[in-house]
């Protein structure tokens, strides 16, 4: 069966108003294994959302291949199974709400699939529990906080029983509390349920929680590695218009000033340990 997500020489060209083409994805090669938590970072317009939309066949390659569980997204016969396998969560939680009550919102997807009511009921219960929103099941979604809405959005995606969740800047609209809630939920899904996660973010501290970080720049994958490896490249990332987590930034500045610190500091605790030896 091969690797879970297999992207080979993937290109995507959009038509421009002048009748030309704009190459938003330029020969992307990427393999993501089942159960991995991959963060994607890159500046605005670098192609992150375009890439994400290929993962459940919302967009199709103009050339190259995007294979999900060995299924080619370009084959229309695979569409249903691919959408079932890969769930999407977008940036603005308000645009994803469809029902007036949380549990109905979560049930919406499975209902559309024609799944039987007792099974839907079971799923709603399980997924609300796994995002920590059980006590809100009878609430009105539009009155929830941003973090809570986004967790309902995740529950809605989970109710389809996907094997992979793609989250496109799910925390961009949230306050710090909401961001922590969403990241904690995603980490738990990954660790406990071995859910494969593709997580797009501009918050480097969030990317640091992933197994792998993929850096996209002008439609190309320019860097991949563990957070330690990627965030050691402070200068390269900053030149690209990106950033590093706070602890990495401080470690970099301290090293520049002559302090002897190890490479690969990403988390606050690692900096504390290194400084308090």
């Amino acid at each position: 069966m091969g690797d879970f997500i297999q992207i080979e020489n993937l290109c995507h060209a959009f038509k421009t108003p002048e009748g030309g083409e704009f190459l938003a994805l330029d020969h992307i090669n990427l393999t993501i294994n089942k159960g991995e938590f991959v963060a994607i970072i890159g500046t605005n317009g670098s192609g992150k959302s375009t890439l994400a939309r290929h993962l459940n066949a919302l967009l199709l390659p103009t050339s190259g291949k995007c294979m999900i569980k060995g299924l080619d997204t370009i084959d229309i016969n695979n569409l249903w199974q691919i959408r079932q396998t890969v769930g999407m969560v977008f940036q603005n939680p308000d645009n994803q709400i469809v029902a007036a009550v949380v549990e109905e919102d979560v049930a919406f997807g499975p209902e559309n699939l024609g799944i039987e009511p007792s099974e839907i009921c079971r799923r709603v219960e399980t997924v609300l529990a796994s995002v920590g929103m059980t006590e809100y099941r009878y609430h009105a979604p539009h009155l929830l906080s941003g973090g809570q809405k986004q967790r309902v959005g995740i529950a809605g995606a989970l109710a389809m029983h996907p094997e992979c969740l793609v989250l496109d800047e799910p925390t961009a609209m949230l306050d710090p509390v909401g961001r922590k809630e969403v990241l904690a939920t995603v980490c738990q899904l990954n660790k406990q349920d071995q859910m494969t996660i593709v997580y797009i973010t501009h918050f480097m501290e969030e990317a640091a929680a992933a197994d792998w970080v993929v850096v996209v720049d002008q439609g190309k994958v320019v860097l991949t590695g563990t957070p330690d490896e990627v965030f050691s490249k402070t200068e390269q990332l900053k030149a690209m218009g990106l950033d590093v987590p706070l602890a990495s930034d401080l470690a970099y500045r301290l090293k520049e000033r002559g302090l002897d610190l190890p490479d690969g500091i990403v988390h606050d605790d690692e900096l504390a340990v290194a400084l308090c030896r």
Partner: peptide, 8 residues
């Protein structure tokens, strides 16, 4: 700044 990249 919601949704803007760090440099932006």
């Amino acid at each position: 700044s919601a949704g803007l990249d760090p440099k932006g």
